[in-house]
Computed example of a mutant assay.
Amino acid sequence: MPVHRSGTVRRPRLIRHFPAAGVILAALSLLFTLPTAAQAADTPARGSASMGMGVAEHDGQGGLPTGDQATQTEGVDTSSHNGNVAWSTLWNSGVKWAYVKATEGTYYTNPYFAQQYNGSYNVGMIRGSYHFATPDTTSGATQANYFVDHGGGWSADGRTLPGALDIEWNPYGAACYGKTAAGMVSWIRDFVNQYKARTGRDAVIYTATSWWQQCTGNSSAFGTTNPLWVARYNTDPGELPAGWLYYTMWQYTSSGPTVGDHSKFNGAYDRLQALANG
């Protein structure tokens, strides 16, 4: 605002002659700031992301599998949102495998990891852990190391699945984390290469086809090395990302009766054991 030589604040001429204009201008200013405030309020807290967080929003939620797929094996994935999981109930309902969120970025570990990871194992399930990627915070190799150091390792016990990289819509900002398609492919490559160097296993890649097309340019770089876990909440898995001729797992709903996220392993139980064994 302009100031008189005397040091007093001088109100704009419009407000001096028409006092009501000041009220109108203040209201307009508040109106134009509201969307930004609302967007900030809608942004979840760091660490709260889980598998499929953006799938229903971006791809929609359709029907359940039609039952005409080949022999498949039921599984679930869990995070801190699920708290202490009733693993015996899930086992008795036919769930035979589970993936548990271990880490996110390099700043978060799941406080329920031990109950979920060990609990699923103790009832007889084959289980693994997953990392929610945040490519805008640190490098792929750095996050792979953090994952392995905080529950993402692998052991040849016949009951442990290779770790999974959850790479999908950014719940905290821009969908592609501010990266070009080439930059995203490079980040993913750094992660899976470092994970294999640490564990000897190729990480599973969890993603949705629409995100993969948008944010990697539909890269075919990983189809021959990394098992695909595709997310699509509908009656079939639909189009797969480039490079993969088939999916290893398909997350088909976030509305399961006990734990929301349910998936099908694309094969009988013995093939699931083979994946665990490497």
Score class of each variant (00 low, 15 high):
106 T>C: 09
162 P>N: 10
134 T>G: 09
267 G>N: 10
101 K>C: 07
67 G>V: 12
53 M>S: 09
58 H>P: 06
141 A>M: 12
3 V>I: 13
195 Y>L: 03
42 D>V: 05
54 G>D: 13
178 G>K: 13
88 S>Q: 12
158 G>P: 09
259 V>H: 03
120 S>T: 07
272 L>N: 05
81 H>V: 08
101 K>S: 11
241 P>S: 07
225 T>N: 14
212 W>I: 01
180 T>I: 15
187 W>F: 15
188 I>W: 01
104 E>L: 06
149 D>H: 02
208 A>W: 00
10 R>E: 14
252 Y>F: 14
171 P>Q: 10
154 W>H: 06
240 L>A: 05
115 Q>H: 11
128 G>L: 00
128 G>A: 11
47 G>C: 09
21 A>Y: 00
38 A>R: 11
252 Y>D: 05
167 I>T: 01
159 R>H: 15
44 P>Y: 07
133 A>D: 02
65 P>R: 09
130 Y>M: 04
192 V>N: 00
184 M>Q: 02
44 P>H: 04
275 L>A: 07
182 A>H: 08
83 G>Q: 07
48 S>L: 02
135 P>F: 04
131 H>N: 05
101 K>Q: 07
81 H>G: 04
266 N>F: 01
230 V>D: 00
165 L>E: 06
142 T>H: 02
242 A>Y: 03
141 A>Y: 04
223 G>T: 06
142 T>Y: 08
139 S>N: 07
267 G>R: 03
129 S>P: 08
80 S>T: 10
22 G>E: 09
160 T>G: 00
112 Y>D: 09
259 V>F: 04
41 A>G: 12
145 N>L: 15
103 T>R: 03
208 A>T: 09
116 Q>K: 07
79 S>G: 10
87 W>E: 02
259 V>L: 02
153 G>D: 08
71 T>Q: 12
214 Q>K: 12
215 C>R: 01
275 L>Y: 02
225 T>S: 13
201 R>M: 14
162 P>G: 10
213 Q>Y: 05
170 N>L: 13
115 Q>W: 07
141 A>V: 10
77 D>P: 04
113 F>C: 08
225 T>L: 11
107 Y>E: 14
253 T>F: 09
15 I>C: 13
161 L>W: 03
